[in-house]
Write a protein that binds this DNA or RNA. Structure first.
Lengths: 193, 193
DNA sequence: GCATACATGTAAACCGTTACATGATTCA
DNA sequence: TGAATCATGTAACGGTTTACATGTATGC
């Protein structure tokens, strides 16, 4: 459902084609929401039918015509309504935690291998957030109002907070696994030997 | 995809019906993965077709027969393989951050209202994790091997880490929003007045 | 010569939620 | 009397991903 509102949100800044909207996704909110073109195009035509957008064709030769979408008054209203709506907390879905939950199946070294791999990936992601944060003031276009930039930066801060939590958690988890006594293949009891 | 492995994981401890599996979801991994019965039942019969499980019917009167599923050697192998597999980092999907990203649409008080509501919900969730953590040693059945309990507790620790990060982030966000100057409806410039 | 940017889509598959369907027993 | 527990499912719908479909211009 957020796809629709993300599209409205971007079109509230400027008229755009689906292709350009995809670029905005990729350069800003892709850290916490993304969409493929194959989802964006049908969503836009549906939103046009619903009166949230209007579309104008720019004719081109040697490539498909550009379909430029513009937000309507109804669209602006719907965006504003949604942004101000308090929602239920969405439930967490973390496949990696399912893996950890059943990880006693593995011997200690395999478990540590999986955890270290995850740690490396969490670190890389966090590093990217930090780099993005550093370059933030240069990246943000000057014509943008300051209040927008504040909220954009808040979403980045969220990524850094969560990312830091993830890295710390795996680091501590690795230490706890190292300290375990009865892991299969460890020093003490083995259940199938 | 994790549904399949969660089912294998639980059935690796004991033979069970779909109904009982659902109860295990609800009392343990529901913090990071959940499933409805309407998804569990077809998944189980598919997994039986794939040779990961075998099913035995226990006849009952006055209610549907119990279909007790048992993991096969192939199922155990598949579980073990998956638990030891390193996976790509899954991308984050946080509708709330989409909302924050476009929140400059709101006046300061409305924005603060939405953030405070979210803060309250994050706090409640974190509180639940803490309560669960305290009662953890009592809740874990005695017959369970200690190594399983260590990994189960790690997933709880993850919840507490992320939950704490979320609470801290919103608290800081609220302070930053309070400190903003050019928010619509704030003390300074208004763009449509 | 190959990848990327530009520019549009459709179709099928997959995963998950909600609604529908049935019906006895037990507890408050 | 009404809700929860036990116990099974199917059908429809919605959102997302992957694969298929087309084709030029530009830069490395």
């Amino acid at each position: 459902m957020s796809l629709k509102y993300a599209l409205l949100g971007f079109l509230n800044y400027a008229d755009m084609t689906g292709y350009e909207l995809k670029q905005h996704f990729d350069s800003s909110i892709q850290h916490f929401w993304n969409a493929k073109l194959s989802q964006i195009y049908p969503a836009l035509s549906q939103m046009e039918k619903d009166g949230l957008l209007v579309m104008e064709v720019e004719y081109q030769e040697q490539r498909p015509n550009r379909k430029v979408y513009k937000i309507t008054a109804a669209g602006r209203q719907e965006l504003k309504r949604w942004v101000g709506t308090t929602m239920e907390l969405q439930s967490v879905r973390e496949a990696f935690l399912v893996q950890v939950f059943f990880m006693a199946q593995l011997d200690r070294e395999s478990a540590l291998g999986v955890m270290r791999h995850q740690l490396e990936q969490y670190r890389k992601r966090l590093e990217n957030y930090h780099l993005f944060k550093k370059s933030f003031s240069e990246v943000v276009p000057a014509e943008v109002f300051k209040e927008d930039a504040v909220f954009w930066e808040l979403t980045l801060d969220a990524g850094i907070k969560y990312g830091t939590a993830a890295v710390e958690w795996v680091e501590e988890a690795i230490e706890k696994i190292k300290g375990m006594e009865r892991v299969k293949g460890g020093l003490e009891v083995s259940h199938d030997g």
